[in-house]
Design a protein around this nucleic acid. Structure first.
Lengths: 253, 253
DNA sequence: CGAACTTTTGACAAGCATCAACACGTGTGG
DNA sequence: CCACACGTGTTGATGCTTGTCAAAAGTTCG
């Protein structure tokens, strides 16, 4: 995968979506002390109930936040891609309220919460960007509530694929509409609040209808307009004001 | 209802859950310029797509954030009670990505985003509290994803009632476990991702089983342990570290 | 006192879950 | 190198949960 970019530049990229950074801001972020770890699937970044004072920046691969219910079912809350921060809240509160673990193999950079808080206190632009990023994550989570609450299985999966494709694209990963999703159908089911059996059937239909292509674990979006339309997908919630003003986006193209 | 407490003290109360305030911090928050408005049900606090540079503090009554889907269905994303801030994200981004409107009559205090940002820039404790409050709202929204994604209708409604009861209690409103919910069943349905017909039936069963009491629009929790148990309700996500350390909470009692 | 909304009820349909196999690929150890 | 175990994907049969449609009864408010 991504070569030896073992620095915090993905974080700079993420934060600069929200606020204008002076060179000194950029340098300050890049100067944060961190530690890179290569992880395998299922490796934990946070465990619910665990005390913690550090957070994690995704460098490669995918991670998933989720909550486990008493009956053993699980609900995935978000998929983390390159540039995403895991556990900002956990770090600030000192306690994790949900689990985060790797969905694929990949690398993460671990940063101490103290260093981040100190940086936020010292540099207003960084503080504002961190706050805005937190608000931004909230917008994504609200869209997930809508997804599981008010869309049927087909639209839910379509929406999930659209969102991940756009977020991948924004992270500077692979070609916009293609999607190399190494997720099991069980994991997709846990994102959508469905069973893996039903996900299997709906995915087959989407494939048969020409909306997606590729065999399992290699989903490719074959017909973006149709998929986005069935999903009721509007990428507005994934764009920041600074971006909307400027460059072209995937969905608009 | 609440008498003439037309100041920003509910905001101070909310923020002090997250960070230790010096008297000067308190005073600075209370000194924010604001404007109180008495609103009737359905009055808008934000409209999706609308440009805005102010946010709203709930003083009395309830409001609801929601998103409308192309097919006309709606999904409520959160219920706002006294002390909650509406539209922090909208204000910071300058654009609303969802609707917020009053669910009952009540009063809100409107504050300009510029004033809040200036205050955050000037007082680190306030900035930190605002950031923490944003993270905190994220925790509530994650629990809503779980609720609509992985619980059946009965547990969803039970969970919703438990959450609102605890949040009301935390806001310093009415007696802990009693709940005076002036919501239509359609509104409850929009919170839970269900239809109003099904909500009606499930509510009847909860009443018949002795978990709740009171006629419509006057729900009272009759058997907290049983209701919380069926909901799989754990109030951990509603408590901040500063609180957990100290005083007694509703669910623990 | 009537209009508009909300709650309630019933009959029926559909979407999705559940259960239980079986197929397929991959990796591992004998 | 083969046999086997294991995780994952696939399929079918069946049934429960929830949605849909429609109408009646109750409520609120001008």
């Amino acid at each position: 995968m991504a070569p030896a970019t073992a620095d915090l530049s993905p974080l700079v990229r993420t934060l600069e979506r929200h606020a204008a950074f002076a060179p000194a801001d950029r340098d300050a972020v890049l100067a944060l002390p961190f530690q890179v770890r290569a992880l395998t699937p299922l490796a934990a970044l946070s465990r619910a109930g665990q005390a913690t004072r550090c957070c994690h920046l995704m460098l490669d691969g995918y991670a998933a936040r989720y909550k486990l219910l008493p009956d053993g079912t699980r609900q995935i809350l978000n998929i983390l891609v390159r540039g995403d921060l895991s556990g900002l809240g956990h770090a600030l509160f000192g306690l994790a309220d949900h689990d985060v673990e790797m969905a694929t193999s990949g690398r993460v950079a671990t940063v101490s919460a103290d260093a981040i808080e100190a940086l936020a206190a010292a540099r207003p632009a960084v503080a504002r960007a961190l706050w805005a990023e937190t608000l931004f994550e909230g917008a994504i989570q609200r869209e997930w509530i809508v997804n599981v609450g008010r869309r049927n299985a087909r639209a839910r999966l379509a929406h999930l694929l659209c969102e991940i494709a756009v977020r991948q694209d924004q992270a500077g990963l692979g070609g916009g509409r293609s999607l190399d999703l190494p997720f099991t159908q069980q994991m997709i089911a846990d994102c959508a609040g469905l069973t893996s059996v039903h996900v299997n059937r709906v995915l087959q239909r989407l494939r048969r209808d020409g909306l997606i292509a590729g065999e399992s674990r290699r989903v490719r979006i074959a017909d973006w307009p149709a998929l986005a339309s069935e999903a009721g997908f509007d990428d507005g919630y994934l764009r920041t004001p600074r971006e909307s003003a400027g460059r072209e986006t995937l969905a608009a193209a």
